[in-house]
Computed example of a mutant assay.
Amino acid sequence: MQLDINKIVINKRVRKNTGDLSQLAESMEKYGQMHPVIVNKKMELISGYRRMQCARQLNWKTVFAIVVDINSEPEKLAMELEENLRRKDFTEEEKIEAFKKLAKLSRPNFFTRLFKAIALFFKGLFKPGR
């Protein structure tokens, strides 16, 4: 659900250093918010502090959020830790392979471009009603 960004309460966080937010903000501006923030029913932020900071930098009025029924300090802290510890970054090999694939998909080779051009040409010649 979309929540008013100004109604989300950000209490003391485990993370002290948000790091450089420019790349995350650029991604959010280009693709939108891919992962929701997590808040409890009191509208206290449980996870997604960096996303919230970027949303504010981008002057967003709302963010996509999941509301959970968690209120105890140990549960909130456990959930914040869980989100930040259980993910796994790509290996260097996986990054290289993904970027190569993206480059190939973004710039089709000569034969692919030629085939598409020929297909468009013949599609134009054989329109219904000609």
Score class of each variant (00 low, 15 high):
M1C: 01
Q2I: 03
L3K: 07
D4V: 01
D4P: 04
I5F: 04
I5R: 03
N6Q: 15
N6C: 07
K7Q: 12
K7W: 01
I8S: 03
I8M: 05
I8R: 04
I10S: 04
N11G: 05
N11F: 02
K12Y: 02
K12C: 01
K12F: 04
K12H: 12
R13K: 14
V14Y: 04
V14A: 06
V14D: 07
V14K: 06
N17P: 00
N17G: 00
N17W: 03
G19Y: 12
D20F: 02
D20T: 03
L24K: 03
L24P: 03
A25D: 03
E26K: 12
E26S: 10
E26Q: 14
E26L: 11
S27I: 05
M28Q: 04
E29L: 12
K30S: 02
K30I: 01
K30T: 05
K30P: 00
K30H: 07
Y31A: 03
M34S: 04
M34R: 08
H35L: 06
H35K: 08
H35Q: 08
P36M: 07
P36T: 13
P36W: 14
V37A: 02
I38F: 04
I38K: 07
V39G: 05
N40Y: 00
N40G: 02
K41Y: 10
K41L: 01
K41D: 07
K42S: 08
K42E: 10
M43G: 00
M43Y: 15
E44N: 13
E44S: 06
I46C: 00
I46N: 00
G48I: 07
G48C: 09
Y49E: 14
R50P: 00
R50K: 14
R51L: 10
M52C: 15
Q53L: 15
A55L: 10
R56S: 09
L58Y: 09
L58V: 11
L58K: 09
L58D: 11
W60C: 09
T62D: 15
T62G: 07
V63E: 11
I66W: 14
V67Y: 08
V68R: 15
D69Q: 11
D69M: 09
N71T: 13
E73G: 02
P74C: 07
A78S: 10
A78L: 12
M79P: 01
M79T: 09
M79G: 00
E80H: 10
E82G: 05
E82F: 14
E83R: 11
N84R: 15
L85V: 14
R86G: 01
R86L: 13
R86M: 11
R86F: 06
R87T: 06
F90L: 06
F90C: 01
T91C: 08
E92K: 11
E92V: 05
E93Y: 05
E94L: 05
I96M: 13
E97M: 14
A98H: 11
A98Q: 08
A98P: 00
F99D: 07
K101A: 10
K101Y: 02
L102Q: 03
K104I: 12
K104Y: 10
L105Y: 03
S106E: 11
R107W: 08
N109G: 15
T112P: 01
A117M: 08
A117R: 09
I118L: 12
I118E: 05
A119E: 07
A119P: 01
F121H: 11
F122W: 12
F122P: 00
F122H: 08
F122Y: 15
K123D: 09
K123T: 12
K123E: 05
L125T: 01
K127T: 12
K127C: 04
P128C: 00
P128F: 02
R130M: 06
R130K: 14
